[in-house]
């Protein structure tokens, strides 16, 4: 637990100082959202709920690939990832600390994106947004877990940076579909029961990605 806290505190200190991951996430998310608005030309209101939900998730995923992975990739500066590998820190705890840091950065970015989404799609700040939060939270944690895992893999292989987008999207598709459906239903004012199945699917994916990361991180950090 002490190691988890030390790594998370260090990552947050570095982020507060440099802001690289969060700024990249926010800027890229908003840019993607703007492109989607221009491309789809929404009329606003509940009728655009599926489009708004789709735009939100596209922004989250593509920005997340650039930003969330940095919590692992930044450790390669000065060989710091090797220092963590050699330290007595449990590698599962290291994965969880990195996941927590990536999730926090994504929460900040997504908060900004949701505000922009409301403005661009002429939505109301009401209970429908609150109903979308569980889907966003589950999707965000799952994607952060996947991005952290893939970032560790990408450091081991030639041209690993290319691997990240090639693997992240296909692996995340089931959770993405569930997230978009749940968000669209929430924005359209559907009852909780209409969201429940989608949320269960997302929760299952979160458990899968987090468990995979917790178990595999140790093997992915070593070198050949």
């Amino acid at each position: 637990m002490a190691g988890f806290v030390a790594v998370l505190r260090k990552d947050l200190t570095l982020e507060l100082r440099g802001g690289e991951s969060t700024l990249a996430l926010v800027a890229l998310s908003i840019l993607i959202l703007i492109v989607m608005v221009f491309a789809l030309n929404p009329v606003g209101g509940a009728a655009d709920a599926p489009i708004a939900a789709g735009a939100l998730w596209v922004a989250m995923i593509f920005a997340g690939m650039a930003g969330a992975a940095r919590v692992v990739l930044a450790e390669r500066d000065n060989g710091c990832l090797r220092a963590l590998y050699l330290s007595p820190l449990d590698r599962g705890a290291l994965f969880l600390a990195k996941l927590a840091a990536a999730s926090i950065f994504m929460v900040v970015a997504e908060a900004a994106v949701v505000v922009m989404l409301v403005l661009f799609f002429n939505l109301d700040f009401d209970g429908r947004l609150a109903r979308m939060l569980p889907a966003l939270a589950l999707g965000l944690v799952g994607f952060a877990a996947l991005a952290t895992l893939l970032a560790a893999i990408s450091g081991r292989v030639h041209a690993g940076d290319l691997l990240m987008p090639l693997l992240a999207v296909p692996l995340y598709v089931p959770a993405l579909i569930a997230g978009v459906k749940a968000s669209a239903a929430a924005l359209a004012g559907a009852p909780w029961s209409a969201l429940a199945d989608w949320l269960r699917i997302m929760a299952a994916f979160d458990v899968l990605f987090i468990a995979a990361g917790f178990i595999l991180f140790e093997h992915l950090l070593g070198e050949d």
Partner: peptide
């Protein structure tokens, strides 16, 4: 372990780096 790479975080101060590794090694 001491290598050609310092294993230090450039954006942390000297004190913060040592505090971090002290916490890591308990």
């Amino acid at each position: 372990m001491l290598t050609h790479q310092s294993y230090l975080y450039p954006n942390l101060t000297a004190r913060e780096n040592l505090e971090f590794f002290r916490a890591l090694y308990r």
